[in-house]
Write a protein that binds this DNA or RNA. Structure first.
Lengths: 239, 239
DNA sequence: TGTACATCAGTGAACGCGCGTTCACTGATGTAC
DNA sequence: TGTACATCAGTGAACGCGCGTTCACTGATGTAC
């Protein structure tokens, strides 16, 4: 009997703790959601008091959930990288594995679409760094998801023999490109990966230019222009 | 006699007005210089009071020179575009006219060098837009200087027959690219200009990634990596 | 040559806000025995 | 079954700051006649 009672009591305790943890997690989510909305008005220069006001709470109550404003910012940054990563992975997964160009273009458009749907979160991670804020190391796993997907496409292309290694690269650069290969595609020919990195940079450069206003009054059909440039780079890669 | 006297008096008046104007212009320059220093600490979220404090003045005194904080920001933005434009034009002019690759690379490195020397001014013009600030139209002439230099290199290449037009482009994109041609190189083959724009975007994407920390812990020799990517794009353009 | 006047850079106080963070506290909920 | 106790989300006041902008003013300089 005593074992059964103990077991029941234990379950109960665990369950209660779970409920408490769940309520807590929901609260954290709501705070982040409200904070995300605020990024729009104030940029990275987010105000805790404004967030609290919007939630009908007193500002000090937020300290139950985040030890400081910077921790909240860090959480938003990681969430943003993950939202982008999820969007990119999802879009790429829908394309037939052997359609390398399709997969590459799906990633490009997923990045752009996500950025357009959440411009302030995009700015938070790819815009100017927040003054006085230094990102901790724990953003890294979330941050590399997109580039890992791109690397996977190249790796598949090399595996199937569809992609051939282009120009070789000098040793100074090779060392750095090799470091990247270790993360996104071990064994990738460095010349190819180097071109891939160029395309990756162009992809985000394009999205940033569009979002940050460099194309205003110049490019009318921004989606078409983007698609054209991305397709050109994909072709250059040999996809 | 009266004509001589009048003329002298006139000269005197003009001279006094000039002196006053000069003192004013120097003051404006100093305010901007101090404000530029402050961009480093606070980002675009510049504080007039902090600037005034640094100058040993009371904050309201600044209103003699700038009608509002936004006007000061606008002045800084235009100055930044012009500083970049001057650096780029100067570097490009030093290279022999027939060395198209050299000219192109000089522009690339000038952009990067300037950005590294004035990272906060770079962020002001190519980073996330300042929340609540809308850039007026008068930044445009300063903003296009760099892209005009790049266009000039392509135009020279086409003129000398060294550059051939690559792939043609679809009509949707052609309209937009043609609009750009009107500014940076009337008569440029649109396929070539489109590639040039891709390279232009990649150039700034690369500088932004470097400055905004995307290459941290990944690319050690950032200058070599940059040079490699820029040279690859120049080759792709046919330079 | 000497006085009245205009210009205008810079002052200082004030208005009406905002902020992050700390701290002692209330009050609900649920546990322990 | 009923009382004592622990947990902890949220409050409200306070600390010590910051901000952009307005406004009446002082005081130097230099002009007009």
């Amino acid at each position: 009997v005593s074992r059964a009672v103990l077991s029941y009591a234990n379950m109960y305790l665990v369950r209660a703790a779970e409920l408490r943890a769940k309520a807590r997690a929901e609260m954290v989510d709501e705070i982040k959601a409200v904070a995300r909305r605020h990024l729009g008005n104030e940029g990275a220069n987010l105000s805790l008091r404004a967030v609290a006001r919007d939630m009908g709470m007193v500002s000090s109550a937020l300290y139950r959930y985040f030890p400081s404003r910077d921790e909240l910012l860090t959480a938003l940054i990681i969430d943003a990288y993950n939202a982008l990563g999820t969007a990119v992975e999802g879009a790429e997964a829908k394309v037939a594995r052997d359609d390398l160009t399709g997969r590459w273009m799906a990633v490009c458009h997923a990045v752009r679409d996500w950025a357009l749907s959440a411009p302030h979160e995009y700015a938070l991670i790819y815009g100017s760094p927040v003054p006085g804020y230094r990102a901790p190391q724990d953003t890294v796993p979330a941050a590399i998801r997109t580039v890992v997907v791109l690397g996977g496409i190249l790796t598949d292309g090399v595996g199937s023999g569809e992609l051939r290694a282009p120009d070789s690269i000098s040793s100074t650069v090779a060392e750095d490109v090799n470091r990247v290969a270790g993360i996104v595609g071990p064994g990738l020919p460095l010349g190819l990966l180097s071109r891939g990195m160029g395309a990756w940079v162009q992809l985000f450069g394009m999205v940033s230019f569009e979002l940050f206003g460099q194309f205003d009054n110049t490019i009318a059909d921004k989606r078409a222009f983007f698609a054209h440039q991305m397709a050109a780079q994909a072709a250059y890669l040999g996809l």
